[in-house]
């Protein structure tokens, strides 16, 4: 992450904004920043824990050119991580030693408050409700809605376009064809969200939401 500009620091806002438009709360707890990549216009809210220090300890010099900085968490564009959520790369015991695997999160993903996420991969346009726990090595595909208070068991694969909920998570439905489509363009004003007061729709383009956070 690049350093915030001097003007922004002087303003002492809630968020530090990087050159690429990432907004990181001053109250977030981020460890191992060198191992974390944010795609741009991504919001990390207050009290979010990003465990970037938990990176792969295996020598990975052979397959990647850049040595020394293994990626542990990579987050795409316009993704929002809400307050008090914890992102911890998944871990597996291998030959008696714990080995961490890099976690990948796509674009326009909304992660609700108080979530604990250890998924290996979350694709784009995923909406995760509040208080969701995703166990290690789960794979969340595109256009998935995870209802609040869900526990996704480890290594579960959530197929594209499904709605999951429950403990353990099971598929409870399908998102409609209009998932993520904000009708007629986000019209501005009070909000065209899913009947709510948001300017954005679940699973849709979160740029408006990111812009509104300051």
């Amino acid at each position: 992450m690049s350093r915030p500009s001097a003007k922004k620091v002087a303003a002492k806002g809630e968020y530090i904004e990087t050159d690429s438009g990432n907004k990181v709360s001053r109250r977030s707890a981020i460890t191992g920043t060198a191992n974390i990549t944010l795609g741009g216009r991504t919001v990390i809210m207050a009290d979010v824990v990003l465990r970037g220090d938990l990176h792969s300890t295996r020598p990975t010099a052979s397959n990647s050119g850049k040595e020394g900085t293994p990626t542990s968490i990579s987050i795409g564009k316009c993704t929002v991580v809400s307050t008090s959520s914890v992102l911890k790369p998944p871990c597996r015991m291998s030959r008696g030693a714990p080995n961490f695997y890099p976690m990948k999160i796509g674009d326009n993903v909304f992660i609700g408050p108080n979530c604990v996420i250890s998924a290996i991969a979350i694709s784009s346009h995923v909406h995760i409700g509040a208080n969701v726990t995703i166990h290690a090595f789960a794979v969340i595909k595109e256009n998935v809605k995870i209802l609040s208070n869900t526990v996704v068991p480890s290594a579960m694969v959530v197929a594209p376009g499904s709605v999951v909920g429950g403990r353990p998570a099971r598929i409870v439905g399908e998102v409609g064809e209009g998932w993520g489509v904000s009708g007629g363009g986000a019209g501005g004003g009070l909000g065209v969200g899913g009947g709510g007061e948001e300017k954005w729709v679940e699973g849709g383009d979160l740029r408006e939401l990111v812009r509104s956070i300051r």
Partner: peptide, 17 residues
């Protein structure tokens, strides 16, 4: 058309933060 409702508060529309 998409129809939505929200409470009209004295305070201006709050950001999601």
């Amino acid at each position: 058309p998409r129809l939505s409702i929200r409470a009209l508060n004295a305070s201006p529309p709050t950001p999601v933060a």
